[in-house]
């Protein structure tokens, strides 16, 4: 895939020596006896307008990285620079402008949408937070156009999440992420819970949106085949460490790390 926006030399995101350690307490005084090194000294960059894939198995730390980037996981050490600005150590208030530029799409479209809110309410919520001055009518127009943009209909805004299929719910999640016009989207297992045909539709939609809006993606998944398809660059995590970082076509042709090779071997292959 060619990048829609000429990627400048400076990466949009620069992660250096990132550590997320959780204390393990034990003994009768509940003293810290050890740490779980969920993310252990990980460094990588994400190029603007491109898709960086992040693969690994459960417990590899891939989701924790995504969460740490938007201040949803406590950072033990290291630095995260976004568009040249340091994000670690910012207060919640100082972080808010970045939360507008960086959005997230979650795995489970069944649990990540509030069942008591209408689709309009769900997509409007980030607008209420980040665009307090926008009028109600303008917000409604924006919701309608977002729904059309992700392949749904404007009338769907009056419905509730349970009235939609898994694929449609993921489209609602994408519309919510796009509402505040972000430049960077973290897709955390965004297609893992979907059927293969629906997965293909959502992957294609994400690629269309990237081409149109110049979005940058960090695409976190355990399915190497999907990541290799959508990613320009692929990062492989194993037990909290980054074990491989290479261009998508390289990773399949010439995997360097033994763990990457094992992961490639385990992917079910269809010979037809």
């Amino acid at each position: 895939m060619t990048a829609p926006v000429a990627s400048t030399d400076a990466p949009l995101l620069e992660v250096k020596n990132l550590k997320v350690h959780y204390p393990l307490r034990g003994g009768f005084l509940k003293r810290v006896v050890d740490h779980v090194r969920a993310v252990d000294d990980v460094s990588f960059t994400v190029a603007r307008g491109r898709t960086t894939g992040l693969v690994g198995e459960s417990g590899s730390g891939k989701t924790t990285i995504g969460r740490a980037l938007i201040k949803l996981a406590p950072i033990t050490g290291g630095s995260i620079r976004y568009a040249g600005a340091e994000l670690t150590g910012l207060s919640n208030r100082a972080f808010l402008p970045f939360r507008k530029r960086v959005q997230m799409i979650f795995q489970d479209p069944f649990n990540s949408l509030n069942p008591r809110m209408t689709v309009e309410g769900i997509i409007r919520e980030p607008l209420d937070l980040h665009f307090p001055a926008m009028s109600r009518a303008d917000k409604r127009d924006r919701v309608a156009s977002l729904l059309r943009r992700v392949g749904l209909e404007a009338e769907h805004m009056h419905r509730y999440p349970h009235e939609f299929s898994g694929g449609q719910r993921q489209r609602i999640g994408i519309a919510r992420a796009l509402a505040v016009e972000p430049e960077f989207i973290i897709c955390d297992e965004a297609v893992s819970a979907l059927d293969v045909s629906v997965q293909a539709q959502i992957v294609n939609l994400l690629q269309d949106l990237q081409a149109e809006l110049g979005l940058t993606y960090l695409f976190i998944a355990h399915d190497l085949a999907v990541v290799e398809h959508i990613g320009d660059h692929v990062l492989v995590m194993h037990q909290g460490k980054l074990v491989e970082s290479a261009a998508a076509e390289e990773i399949y042709r010439d995997p360097k790390d033994p763990y990457t090779r094992r992961l490639l071997e385990a992917v079910p292959k269809l010979a037809v």
């Binding site: 895939m1 293969v196 045909s197 997965q199 293909a200 539709q201 992957v203 294609n204 690629q207 399915d223 190497l224 085949a225 999907v226 290799e228 398809h229 076509e249 399949y252 042709r253 490639l264 992917v267 292959k269 269809l270 037809v272």
Partner: peptide, 30 residues
């Protein structure tokens, strides 16, 4: 069935699986 799918749905279902090492611009959908 995998090598010579006769039904259009079977062909479509096989076609939309991303393949490792096969670069495609877009994934086929059903």
């Amino acid at each position: 069935v995998l090598r010579h799918p006769r039904h259009p749905y079977t062909r479509a279902l096989i076609g939309c699986i991303p393949r490792l090492g096969v670069r495609q611009d877009r994934l086929a959908t059903i």
